[in-house]
Design a protein around this nucleic acid. Structure first.
Lengths: 350, 350
DNA sequence: GTCCTCCGTGAGAGCGCTCTCACGCTCATT
DNA sequence: AATGAGCGTGAGAGCGCTCTCACGGAGGAC
């Protein structure tokens, strides 16, 4: 094997070698490295010296083999295309997750299955127990993954409320509350005919934002009107198409709540082309507070979400579940914040 | 241990068990699983049956322990904040990398060190040989990582041309050529006083795009003018600040080449506020062709980059290096494409 | 003084896999 | 007919680590 291996990278020191240098047994070095309290101060110091001197770093594979823990967490992103490329949601979420994980010395394994075959391979990989826990992001209603890994008994946490009632912990932003506050803001500005361009009906974020929209209307004593509701796909093109339909059906619209900034940007372009002034004729509010919100003209009022925090919280929940210290299912909902900009400014003169 | 373990997750079948079911030795099962040709058809089939029946999946830790290969590749993203959150560069790159890796059954380990302490831990982790190879993304000039891992002898590939002459393979988009084509486009439209808002001077993308700008001017017989060049930080705010300085120093500007779309968006806002019409008074071209480019008004002419392809190519190069089949250093430069939109339309009347 | 407990340490098994080597068989070669 | 090459298969070592168990010595209870 020494001969056959083309690489022969220098292998680091082993426990055995550290033990020899420190003049103790392998077991004692292991105890020191893993912070066991049952080691005398003197021995501990001499082991630590040897560790530093040899630059010893534990071999994770060997450790995994016996502990049956991989020391890694999978993050699975199953997003066809749209949202993934169009807003900085994922980088921010990943950063939050990464931060939450690194403190505990867990590695983040990123899985982005594209094809159904990929998804199948991913499911097999995950169910085989190669990771200690799983973070599921951007779940659609029909995703088979949660069931598969639940059956395999691997702890997992979902980002965003899962639509089907999986017995799973999840972390979500308050989509319903955020949408409600956006629409309340429009109502307070004197708008009366408020349409919404919703998200996909198979995603929690889509469903909940629509619910929040309806909540606000109901509170104001208005009844929901199907001709004012249309589903988009979170993309700019989708937003534009939806806006056109909306405008054709209801030319009397004086406000639009779009469930994403990109869709709002698409809607703005269409409204503009139709000769509507924003915000004078039609006020518009988006969702996400993405960078796009400050490049539209007028700049876009939007609902800001604590994405990094969401990632961090997901990591925290999952690690607790992996430790077994918290077998309970938890649902964490994080608050959103309405960021007011020009697109919804000014009171309409009735 | 059986008692101490709070989880006791069902462990999958082992090689040994498959061997027993198939009536062969462990070694033979290993050969079948690893696709060795030295197994007779009959035996192979009976092993495959047993594998399927037991749902056998190899234990990666055990395999790693003996092969000294982890089966995973690290992707290190060291980006302070700005770019990471503001454009979809990273998701796209990650997707490209992921695609390039998954075909080879390599796991993608994502590392996003934030603090200097994180970076140190990351370096230690990587140098310890826990991954088979490393992909370095968004490298700044002063990053100590390349040296560290080069010294440890771990194969790595850099995304974007590294500024200091690391003896490293890299994949880059043709920043210089892309910038040149953008500026040539402005020249062809009759613009004569073309400013540039560049990227950070410690990043290859920043330096190269500036060089491309100068190339185009030189080709047109114009000499570079320091009062027309200013460095930004790839963010919208940075672009706006730069544009203000530029406008104060050279009110006669009739075109701007911004090294990122976000900076271009910032510049547009400032130009607008200063009463300049776009593109009539000042034409503007961005870089990245990000979603922002189609939300600005007018929509932004920009340089499109093959980001997914870049990620794929990085994965490909790295895997070749890991295999040892390609110890040569490679430099791959991918072509860009100018996407013409309204912000640079129309010929200026001299 | 004897017995027992407790604590720090070492010995050794074994996690699941790959890889080398040896072995026995079948065929082609002389 | 004898020899050897080649191929498919099995036996067994060992990767680096953790964990259980055993052991010896110190200290307290009787």
């Amino acid at each position: 094997m020494t001969i056959a291996d083309p690489q022969a990278r220098p292998r680091g020191a082993t426990l055995e070698e550290v033990a020899k240098v420190a003049g103790v047994s392998r077991a004692t070095v292991s105890r020191v490295v893993n912070g066991s309290p049952r080691v005398s101060g003197e021995v501990r110091r001499s082991v630590e010296t040897a560790v530093t001197q040899l630059g010893y770093v534990p071999n994770r594979a060997a450790r995994s083999l016996v502990t049956r823990r991989s020391g890694s967490i999978a993050v699975v992103i199953t997003e066809p295309t749209g949202r993934l490329f169009s807003d900085p949601f994922f980088p921010r979420l990943l950063r939050g997750i990464s931060g939450g994980l690194s403190a505990r010395d867990q590695q983040l394994i990123l899985l982005m299955p594209e094809s159904p075959a990929d998804t199948e391979r991913t499911a097999t990989y995950l169910a085989a127990g190669h990771v200690d826990g799983i973070l599921l992001v951007s779940l659609h209603g029909d995703d088979p993954l949660p069931d598969r890994i639940a059956r395999a008994g691997i702890p997992f946490v979902v980002g965003g409320r899962p639509l089907r009632g999986h017995a799973a912990s999840f972390v979500d932003v308050d989509n319903r509350g955020g949408a409600r506050s956006a629409v309340e803001h429009l109502l307070a500005a004197g708008r009366t005919t408020i349409a919404t361009i919703g998200g996909p009906g198979d995603m929690g974020a889509g469903v909940d934002r629509l619910a929040g929209y309806r909540d606000a209307l109901a509170d104001a004593g208005l009844t929901a009107d199907p001709s004012l509701e249309i589903a988009g796909d979170f993309t700019q093109g989708g937003g534009a198409a939806a806006m056109e339909q909306l405008l054709a059906a209801r030319p009397d619209i004086d406000a639009v709540f779009a469930a994403s900034d990109l869709m709002a940007a698409g809607a703005i372009a269409v409204l503009e082309a139709a000769g509507r002034r924003i915000p004078q004729d039609v006020a518009i509010v988006g969702y996400d507070d993405s960078p796009v919100a400050s490049t539209t003209r007028p700049r876009l009022t939007s609902v800001r979400q604590p994405i990094e925090e969401m990632g961090q919280e997901m990591a925290r929940l999952l690690l607790a579940a992996v430790d077994g210290s918290d077998p309970v299912q938890r649902r964490v909902i994080l608050a959103t914040e309405l960021v007011r900009r020009a697109s919804s400014a000014g009171r309409r003169v009735p």
